[in-house]
């Protein structure tokens, strides 16, 4: 079943077409990788799905319901959570308070919100840091806090924007484990943007490739790795053997 359908979505900023006629589906419980060189339109795609930008044309559907033109908080209530490429924790709040703030979206009382928050923090290995002020967290943990906050809204779909960028190998392995657990234990569907090729190839079920705002390829990781168009987009024409 298709959870999210992106139908012919274009987004123009003045004369610049950040996305043109992009179409793809996100199936239930899959991990779909979204890759492409810098400026390919990946984050813009997230911003359209998540409701920050209305698409210039085309539509985004969630379980057959149109969600483009809805506001981010409404999209979140419908079960789509996201993280940001530049980590944006609520700086002057403790880790726990950060997660409580997002757990309040579904929780009726503070006790309930706290319960959800603590559970999510355990899940993302941040339980021991719960009293730390978020500003002081190292990058690896801040990236996990981003994920924890998204999870606390109890989403069905989570959009991860470069959750691996800037991490060291140990942190990357830990993060891969968490992303896999998000699907296997919580049954959440994942759409992920990532530059780290090894990571994306190993965790994605399918991959969509964008370049200059157009979808240039879609398929399982092994196909994408061999696709001449993808290699060309990443490495330039001369490298074609």
């Amino acid at each position: 079943m298709n959870l999210i359908e992106v139908k012919n979505v274009s987004k123009r900023f003045g004369g610049l077409a950040a996305l043109s006629e992009v179409t793809f589906e996100l199936k239930q419980k899959e991990i779909l990788g979204l890759i492409g060189p810098n400026g390919a339109g990946k984050t813009t795609m997230f911003n359209v799905i998540n409701g920050f930008y209305p698409p210039s044309s085309g539509e985004v559907h969630l379980r057959g319901r149109k969600i483009s033109n809805r506001k981010p908080h409404q999209v979140c209530k419908l079960g789509v959570a996201r993280t940001f490429q530049v980590v944006r924790p609520l700086q002057r709040m403790s880790v726990l308070d950060n997660v409580i703030a997002s757990a309040f979206m579904r929780a009726a009382t503070k006790a309930q919100a706290e319960e959800v928050a603590l559970e999510v923090l355990k899940f993302s290995n941040l339980h021991d840091d719960r009293e730390t002020i978020s500003k002081g967290l190292p990058l690896g943990k801040r990236k996990r806090l981003e994920i924890a906050r998204a999870l606390a809204t109890l989403p069905e779909i989570i959009l991860l924007d470069e959750s691996f960028a800037g991490l060291n190998p140990t942190e990357i392995n830990e993060q891969i484990e968490i992303v896999n657990k998000i699907r296997s234990e919580r049954g959440i569907t994942i759409l992920i943007i990532e530059h780290h090729m090894k990571v994306i190839m190993s965790i994605s079920d399918r991959i969509v490739v964008l370049n200059y705002g157009r979808k240039i390829a879609e398929g399982i990781p092994s196909e994408i790795g061999r696709s001449p168009t993808v290699i060309e987009a990443y490495l330039g024409e001369e490298h074609r053997a």
Binding site: F52, R88, P89, A101, K110
Partner: peptide, 26 residues
């Protein structure tokens, strides 16, 4: 400030876009 409202107020202060995408009608 110790209720949901308080958490939302501070979330909006710290980052309005992040708050919005966490389901807060800013």
């Amino acid at each position: 400030m110790e209720s949901k409202l308080g958490y939302y107020f501070v979330a909006i202060r710290e980052d309005q876009d992040a708050a919005e995408s966490l389901g807060i009608d800013t």
